[in-house]
């Protein structure tokens, strides 16, 4: 017969290990270039940045591949400009109400389909890119820890902006402006973008309402 200490040993060992579980860390990013990864991940963990970047990509994609291509270049530059404004002058943030206004504006332009037909389309596009990228860069800079390396953080932020916006634009342009469309679904493809726009505007409206409530102290 097996002694009781022999049968209890595996359970005891498991109990000790269970009480001290730890997550596996294959890449300890904090050890080297940690602030680069922190900067790259920072906007991706904030729903406000995600919605605004998506709105901007949808807006640029709806205007056609020609204008959309510019965003690939302007996105990281705009993020860096906003980042610098916040770090050096302490300006650039627009708060929840401003972000809600941007969501509503971009969403309504998408939902109505007005932007494609406007004569001032280029200026509208430029203004939207400048506002979204600069304010996003500034808000991310404001969220940076004081001990963080600003250069690495900014490089990570700009890289994330470049990668995310390129992938989003590729998907949106392929959906809205396919090189060959024999399925007869061109109308539906435009409607998908309009529906996305109305959803973004609706989100912005609700956030704006909440921001107004907070401001009024109701």
């Amino acid at each position: 017969m097996t002694p009781p200490t022999m049968t209890a040993r595996p359970w005891l060992l498991a109990l000790v290990l269970l009480l001290a579980p730890g997550l596996a860390e294959a890449h300890i990013i904090a050890a080297r270039l940690g602030d680069f990864y922190t900067g790259a991940l920072h906007p991706l963990t904030d729903p406000q940045d995600i919605v605004l970047w998506l709105a901007l990509a949808l807006f640029a994609g709806s205007l056609g591949p020609g204008r959309a291509r510019w965003l690939v270049l302007l996105m990281p530059l705009g993020l860096l400009a906003g980042f610098l404004l916040q770090v050096t002058l302490g300006i650039g943030q627009i708060g929840a109400l401003g972000a809600a206004g941007l969501m509503v504006g971009l969403g309504l332009l998408l939902a109505s389909g007005l932007a494609t037909g406007l004569a001032a389309g280029n200026r509208l596009f430029g203004g939207a890119v400048l506002l979204v990228t600069a304010t996003s860069g500034a808000s991310n800079a404001a969220g940076m820890a004081p001990e963080a390396n600003a250069t690495l953080f900014a490089a990570g932020l700009a890289s994330a902006g470049y990668v995310v916006i390129t992938l989003l634009l590729a998907a949106i342009v392929a959906l809205r402006w396919p090189s060959t469309d024999t399925s007869g679904t061109a109308g539906w493809r435009a409607i998908v973008l309009r529906v996305c726009g109305s959803w973004i505007a609706a989100i912005g409206l609700m956030i704006g309402g909440f921001a107004l409530k907070s401001l009024a102290g109701v």
């Binding site: 309504l108 939902a111 409607i191 309009r194 529906v195 726009g197 109305s198 959803w199 505007a201 609706a202 989100i203 409206l205 609700m206 704006g208 309402g209 909440f210 107004l212 409530k213 009024a216 109701v218």
Partner: peptide, 22 residues
Amino acid sequence: LWVLPVTFPLVMALGGVLGVLG
């Protein structure tokens, strides 16, 4: 078929703002 899904969320959000503001 497509106007309702585009406009409904917007109008509903307006109602949502009224609710948020009390």
